[in-house]
Design a protein around this nucleic acid. Sequence first.
RNA 1: CGGGACGUAGCGCAGCUCGGUAGCGCGCACCCUUGGGGUGGGUGAGGUCGCAGGUUCAAAUCCUGUCGUUCCGACCA
Length: 575
Amino acid sequence: MTLRQTKMFLPTLREVPSEAEIISHQLMARSGMIRQLVSGVYTYMPLGHRVLRKVQQIVREEMDRAGAQEISMPAIQPAELWQETERWDAYGPELMRLKDRHHRDFVLGPTHEEVVTSLVRDNINTYKKLPINLYQIQTKFRDEVRPRFGVIRAREFIMKDAYSFDTTREGLDQSYEDMYNAYKRIFTRVGLNFRPVEADAGAIGGKGTHEFMALSDIGEDTIAYCDSCDYAANLEKAEVVFKAVETNQTEEKSLEKVSTPGVKTIEQLVGFFGKGADSFIKAVAFHVDGQLVIALVRGDHEINDIKLKNMFDANVVTMASDEELIAHGLTSGFIGPINVSDKVQVVADIAVQNMVDVICGANEADYHFANVKPGRDFQIARTGDLRNIQEGDECPRCGGEILFARGIEVGHVFKLGIRYSEKMGAKFLDENGKEKPMIMGCYGIGISRAVAASVEQNHDENGIIWPWTIAPFHIHLIPVNVKNDEQRMLAEELYEKLQNAGFEVLLDDRPERAGVKFKDADLIGIPLRVVVGGKAAEKQVECKVRKTGEAQDLHVDAVLNYLNEKSAELIAECQ
RNA sequence: CGGGACGUAGCGCAGCUCGGUAGCGCGCACCCUUGGGGUGGGUGAGGUCGCAGGUUCAAAUCCUGUCGUUCCGACCA
């Protein structure tokens, strides 16, 4: 490995490539870490590759420590395996498919449940060989609808995926916990500001699941977290604690039909009636596994379609189309729970059931009902938690206050159970000679995504600021003027010395001007910098910390001590 | 999948409205200069104007199609 910049393939850019929108993408491109080949597909150049390897190494160490064993499975997989689990159809167009010369169908693996389950089923058949946890670090393929954010949502990316096989539920719980703890150590060591959050299990099934979120404003997920305990959940999952609103309502008003021409949205209703959004019922029609469902929430709340899906234990939930609305006698913009056909089921969020004197759509263009009382004026088929949690709501664990943050999903742990082992016949004989399906878990880390998330979290206006543990180099050694013999020789001397001391050193031996070198150094973001300049004759050099900007002139003999001290501080930040 | 924008030198862009010799900045090569925050000057190399078709005496420019990139939305282990 050449660690001299004159020899290294490290093309930095002064300007931002036009396709890069977010800061991490811009900086990774400008610093010469990555180049885009086509949409969502990237080359990692030497600098980027070194960072990837650092992250991979940490992941390996922690996975091995947790008792997992590294393997390497094929990226190319036969369609038959995917047909066994029915994911050949279920996975949809996101699955990269191809044919071989004999016209046999294959896929480029987006994940490896099928392959690993087939592997284990063919090679393990007794409880004596279980539990086992197998992992790999490998390129994955997903034909994303819309690749974006550079390598954060790419179509080809590097993932660590692990799969555990246990004989009992309790065993799975243990495997899961081991992985959960390993993930906490991994992301801590990688230097990410992250949070494990409870998540919805989604289509992959299983009960327990946590996502590891790198906190970032550009994150695609919203995290609801508590300000006083460690509760954190994905917005789609976060439970809402129902608090009954006290009412001093004594006399009961009767239902009244009000003309509301053109008033459709909650916002318009608020303006029209001069009442708060919580005086209205928001009604949205969904298509739930073939049935039309009207879901009700309070006007100031948002419907959570995943909770709706879970309420019905449904496979598919989509917004009802205009055609479906008309077919069921509903009018877009004026949907309500009163006078609906028998074919339509009305469900409601808990907060709706004891609302009084509320206003809702009349299922007739330009009319709303006022003074509506749930239970009296309409019946609710099912009641439950159907809304998104909001900032300021009560924490479901401790009663503290819920706040929101955005996060980039860098890891995910799942309890799969027997979903795959049953379909694929991955069974073992237990102590009693009885055949049982293996109980599985799966655990993913987006390696390349974690790198981008780190850049997103660690940069300033001049460039990247790498955490020590995943920095491509530890020390950037910069002779200001390589034509000056004293500077050049002192730099060479230090280069040897620092490398012998165990540091990874990048020597900027380019015949560039100081400004160019400093700009590139800031951009690349190596944690510590040693500048050999005008005082080379007196054996004085400048040492600088990229993150804080603190700099000091030192005699060469004092440099090693100083760097050891600073590196120890930087290492401590990732523990 | 719906809506929008953009494809001109390695990178960033102008030129297109109104058809007629393809330009600028950066980068690159060489010379001089400078030498602690993207020095200054000079010389030079580098482009099927995304692709295909059409209109025209003539197309980067007008028309049609297509491919690519990207943004917003929908979707999303």
